[in-house]
Amino acid sequence: MTSRLLEPQTGAAATVRRIHAMVLRHWYLLRSSGPRALEMVFWPLVQMLTWGFVQLHLAQTTSLAAAAAGLFVGGVLLWDILARSQLGFAMAFLEEVWARNLGHLMMSPLRSYELIASLVMVSLIKLAVSMIPVVVIAYLMFDYSLFSIGLPLAAFFANLVITSWSFGLVSTGAVLRYGLGAENIAWLMTFLMMPLSCVYYPVTTLPVWLQPFSWALPPTYVFEGLRAIVLHGEFRGDLMLWAFLLNLVYLAAGVALFRYLIESARNAGTLVHMGE
């Protein structure tokens, strides 16, 4: 009886339909709350303004900073691409937990890979909402255009968002398995990465023993790549390739861990009371 009322449940069309439904759910949410959208712009804007003024000050007092205009503003904008994308991913998932909607979703025909795909798409939408106004304001206030990086920006962007999804998968998987007590992981993971990723300084600034840990993070290659462009006008393809290869490993590990944690949550029974 039921299948006569329903679209086919398998195949690409079914997958696209279910991902679309989940993206639509977050789009409705975003549309329904102006303050929520405003908050998404607020923090990246505060960061950008702070570092923009620091850079203006340094440009007036040191020749290096004057020569390397865009080092800080470029760094902060790229960092926010990573941070906002990861938070967008994790928040989209946490919304389901807070709304006590996860049980409905987990027993609907939605597959775990479709849930992941929808979180990826929602993170991109939220990233656009966060960053487009900030990029425009950076141009108007500090005469810095992120697009002045040129084509390498695409490589930077791709590497940063892939990293954000990998970390987003780990933090959301932890919440699935260990409940809302693990929620802080979603907030902490990105910010713990910040000093190690060398957003505003070269890797050589770190103690020697810490540098291998830094090179183990894909964003480090992106920020080194940014400095190579800003300071030397050189695009380091090798750095982007390393970042990409590392990202493939991180993403595969993130997906595997997420799926493992879902199964583990089904074993431990934590899906049932999620959000209560």
Binding site: L5, L6, H20, P109
Partner: peptide, 13 residues
């Protein structure tokens, strides 16, 4: 909105 999202998830024609 809620019902339409679940209808899509289930593929209700």
């Amino acid at each position: 909105q809620n019902l339409s999202i679940f209808a899509r998830l289930y593929g209700v024609i």
